[in-house]
């Protein structure tokens, strides 16, 4: 886990349903209000859409899918966090849907704990750690792994779908 010398992690906190998440502020490029989303037919629900970010076509991911959360329609608090993620070693710009974006904050490294292997609603491999702040928990997702799993998963059905060389 990358922490600064002072032993804290600069993170953007955002809310997905009723849970607070923290993602590393350094990889965030910008935060957008909701923009028109183009649905990609037959794509997995996790990355079912595309958005236009300043003339670039950027995939939009919904982490709520990976954490098995409800997905109500977007409201006035909904934001898109545009960030750089590594997908199989390739830096890719992707958007992440957030129900609400809070602030940028320092999370003390000492307060971050390993995700417990049991007693959790979510797959532990998607979580890098759990931090504490103001008495509540902040989930630090492992975005690299979430996106990579995504790549591996969509690759397998693709293999059965032969593509003609034209």
């Amino acid at each position: 886990m990358s922490t600064t010398e002072t032993g804290s992690m600069k993170a953007l906190t955002l809310r997905l349903q009723d849970e607070l998440f923290a993602i590393e502020a350094g990889s965030v490029r910008e935060i957008l209000d909701l923009v028109p989303i183009t649905e990609v037919p037959n794509a997995s629900p996790f990355v079912s859409g595309l958005i236009n970010v300043r003339g670039r076509v950027v995939p939009l991911a919904d982490l709520r899918v990976m954490f098995g959360m409800d997905r109500p329609e977007p409201d006035e608090d909904t934001r898109i966090v545009v960030m750089e993620v590594d997908i199989d070693g390739e830096p890719t710009v992707a958007g992440i849907l957030a129900d609400k974006v809070h602030d940028v904050t320092d999370i003390e490294a000492a307060s971050i704990e390993e995700a417990p292997r049991v007693g959790m609603r979510w797959r532990p491999e998607f979580i890098r750690g759990i931090g504490k702040r103001n008495g509540g928990f902040i989930i630090i997702p492992d975005l690299g792994r979430i996106f990579e799993t995504q790549g591996a998963r969509t690759a397998s059905p693709a293999a059965s779908e032969e593509r003609s060389a034209t």
Binding site: P36, V40, L50, V58, P59, A94
Partner: peptide, 24 residues
């Protein structure tokens, strides 16, 4: 399209329309 969508073979790419939305 990014790697996240490269497995969907029905589309060869995307473009941005005049009103700013993305079309496949």
């Amino acid at each position: 399209l990014s790697k996240l969508h490269s497995s969907i073979k029905s589309f060869s790419g995307a473009t941005i329309l005049g009103d700013g939305t993305v079309a496949l």
